[in-house]
Nucleic acid binder design. Structure first.
Lengths: 197, 197
DNA sequence: CAACAATGTAGCTGGTGACAACAATGCTGT
DNA sequence: ACAGCATTGTTGTCACCAGCTACATTGTTG
């Protein structure tokens, strides 16, 4: 019974998984490379082989976060049937859910995105948001949204959704109030999107 | 020439001022009690008399932040004339400006607000947001907004504004794009606020 | 199977937050 | 005036952390 082989096997993956859990449960500030190493059962210097410094770990965490978020958004939109409003609402709900459960991770993702160093992060973010822009394009094609630059309309929608998530993470509302707030926000948005009624 | 009197005189204020500057320029994570003490020209243990631990300093910072934000919102709404849309837009602009320039401080303010310990913080936050609820009340009285619980309507508006600020701080848009995005958001919001056109 | 690259270990340095003992100062009551 | 006391600041200590370097172990490849 080899208690602990010298080589962990997939330290990098294990570190990322544990780090993601720690960030979710106790926040980014509480994330310590050394504690992480202890939790994974490895010496305090081992993570350095995979992440030269703390920031590198955070960047990797952000990148994997974008990938997971993108997958969840895609799953939501794909499983929401034909009706545009339903597709929109499902996607928004998925985003908000992610933003609530992994609030600190999401913040990390955005914070890292505008640090010039990380091109991989920007690419990952672009892939993630392409889901949203495609959805906006659908709405415009159906005539439910006024035509125009998808970015202009999409930004406004994204801002609203992001803001609603901020309401929850900032404890201005409780999570269960989303049941009425989100549909109302979607309705409000669609109503406001037809210039001439 | 007394180079440095034993008693600083108003260490607490000086610490808060310097801390606010540091948070704005280099972020909350870079805020160190010891460095703060050095910058103010005092020994590393001195801040302890005023802030028992780091969190106490952050709480005080958040509280003063709410007071300043409230003052700026009030100034904006008071200086924006009679037209409701103009008053709304001016207030939103003031909020967004604060949210951009003091992004980390704002985050600190919201993060601290839902830590049960700090009742002073919650009170300060309530005073701040009362400005917004009054404004919503105005709009409803004028019939520009559909009547109802000011919180319901206000939450949606607040979410949108907060989200727009997040777009800037997350580098999804540039600050100068606010010139068209904010008015459009306000227009969108008002348009969506009349159930039957 | 020997050399080499990849991976993990151990120890050091400088910095930090929390804490406690101590010193200087200002205030208050008599 | 001044003794006693509370307030405020100083110094030293402890445990922890990130980043670094030198070294040990493993597995892979020619």
């Amino acid at each position: 019974m080899d208690v602990r082989p010298y080589h962990h096997g997939n330290l990098r993956t294990a570190l990322l998984a544990q780090a993601e859990r720690t960030v979710r449960e106790r926040g980014v500030n509480e994330l310590s490379l050394r504690e992480l190493a202890r939790e994974v059962g490895v010496s305090h210097g081992a993570p350095r082989r995979h992440f030269p410094d703390r920031q590198a770990l955070l960047d990797a965490l952000a990148e994997s976060g974008f990938e997971r978020l993108g997958a969840e958004l895609r799953a939501a939109v794909d499983g929401a049937g034909e009706d545009f409003r339903a597709r929109l609402e499902a996607t928004a709900k998925a985003y908000i859910q992610f933003a609530i459960e992994d609030a600190e991770l999401l913040e990390l993702m955005f914070a890292g995105k505008h640090r010039e160093s990380a091109q991989a992060l920007v690419d990952a973010a672009d892939r993630t948001f392409s889901v949203l822009f495609e959805l906006i394009g659908e709405g415009q094609a159906e005539g439910v949204l006024e035509p125009g630059d998808p970015e202009r309309v999409g930004l406004l929608l994204f801002a609203t959704v992001q803001g609603i998530a901020a309401l929850v993470t900032g404890s201005m509302i409780e999570a269960d109030q989303l049941d009425w707030l989100l549909p109302e926000a979607i309705a409000h948005f669609l109503r406001g999107s037809r210039t001439a009624s």
